[in-house]
């Protein structure tokens, strides 16, 4: 089954780390991405822009109301996510433990349905 790791944290935390700590965190991310892709169990992975770029769309009186800012007015925002094929929740937890802990909180949720996406090469976010 496909599982997701949703990464929640403060937009500012990463920027507050020293260069060495940032590097250490990035090494964990790229390391895990390599493990997942080498094993061909890596689904879509994303890092989101700062939550100040967000707009929120909800219905008001039957029309779409667009407001500025993220949906949840909390310090901890959705920063990004992984998806990967795992045999069990236990396996997903073990994978999540390889990510930098302490600078963000990881929520693991099984994916009920997903589509791998159809993108032109130009849309590749890297």
């Amino acid at each position: 089954m496909l599982y997701s790791i949703l990464i929640f944290g403060d937009d500012e935390t990463f920027g507050q780390l020293s260069a060495a700590e940032q590097d250490a965190a990035m090494v964990k991310h790229t390391g895990l991405q390599k493990i997942l892709s080498d094993a061909s169990i890596m689904g879509p992975v994303a890092k989101l822009h700062n939550s100040s770029t967000a707009v929120t769309v909800r219905a008001q009186d039957g029309v779409a109301l667009v407001t500025d800012g993220p949906f949840a007015e909390t310090k901890e925002q959705l920063l990004g996510f992984y998806t990967m094929e795992c045999a069990s929740m236990e396996e997903a937890i073990e994978i999540a433990k390889q990510l930098p802990l302490g600078i963000a909180t990881l929520e693991i949720r099984p994916v009920e349905w997903f589509h791998g996406g159809v993108l032109s090469p130009a849309a590749n976010g890297e």
């Binding site: 507050q16 780390l17 020293s18 060495a20 700590e21 250490a24 965190a25 930098p100 802990l101 302490g102 600078i103």
Partner: peptide, 15 residues
Amino acid sequence: CRLRPMESEQTFARY
């Protein structure tokens, strides 16, 4: 409170 594992003096200064 929670202990964050990657703390250093430099990080404290940034906080």
